[in-house]
Design a protein around this nucleic acid. Sequence first.
DNA 1: GTCTATAGCTAGATAGAC
DNA 2: GTCTATCTAGCTATAGAC
Lengths: 189, 189
Amino acid sequence: MAYAKVEHDVVIDKLMEVFRSSGYDGASMATLAQATQLKKASLYHRFPQGKEEMAHAVLRYVATWAKSRIADVPVVSDSTPEDRLDTALKAIDELYDGGRLDCILRALSHGSAANLFQKEIGAIFETLIRSFKHLALEFGHNEQQAQQLANELMVKIQGTLIVQRSLGQPSMFKAMLAEMSAKFMKTHF
Amino acid sequence: MAYAKVEHDVVIDKLMEVFRSSGYDGASMATLAQATQLKKASLYHRFPQGKEEMAHAVLRYVATWAKSRIADVPVVSDSTPEDRLDTALKAIDELYDGGRLDCILRALSHGSAANLFQKEIGAIFETLIRSFKHLALEFGHNEQQAQQLANELMVKIQGTLIVQRSLGQPSMFKAMLAEMSAKFMKTHF
DNA sequence: GTCTATAGCTAGATAGAC
DNA sequence: GTCTATCTAGCTATAGAC
């Protein structure tokens, strides 16, 4: 590639920001160009298929993020399960800026994008669920409990983002993460 | 009004269908006209402020629905709390067609609509939460438990709709409603 | 109240200079 | 790789006949 890799990452990050806040249909080429500080024609040079290719690139970035920040935490670390859960949930908290930001996966799941990225988005959700399920197993939960906890975490992340926004109560997200953390650590006897 | 009221309701229903599936930004006047079987100019006659006024009308309709189908259930009925909870949750299940449909409140909460309808949408969420909290109190839950259960139900409705769609597992929504129903009925001692 | 027709604009996308 | 300039299609919105 002829352009610097770091700059490409910055472009991806800016594209993600626009898709996340505006949605796929709400993100225009003009907006995306302004955010990346590139002209529209330059964006088409990097992403010949336009918006759709940009969204794919963003989702590849998110998939990489999920693997490195969530899935690979148990692998690279030799710390306790408590530490690894804390690290993973802190990454989630950071990703959504304490619940203030929309979820990019949801933003690319609706409107005219409903069927375009379904497969990639589903795979990312599955990666996240599998990762948190493994963590739950480490705490001593059985197979079914671990699966339920991981599913519940995903559901509550998505649901809390929506309800918190609509109710204007910015404390819900962090409270939910703390509550779910306690649920993971508390094995039932 | 010069047009029949029943027809107006049909128009509102079709508008809601488009906003829900396409989102606010994805819903074009052409699409809205086609869905209502009216021409664009006729839509502007009924809704002089265009899309924004249509969305407001849809949200007024949803607020009425929430009051009549959820909030007023305890009032109009002299049945048991179990029956009333069942009726309310069946209304929710019907509203989302078993989790297959997007939530209109979420569809009108993002993109360029993010700040346009926040107040109305928040009020509808509050109505729903208040209603389910009252139901929880009837089952003997204390103030704090009832509030938590009602919040959890809202969060799980929204979150399950998203996760179910992305994972392609259409059974999650009904299972979640059944699980939450059990939680409402089971008072902790 | 409904329609046809159209104005004025912005969308996504491309050509071609540098 | 980046840019200016431009195309066509679709968008919101309105004028005015019936």
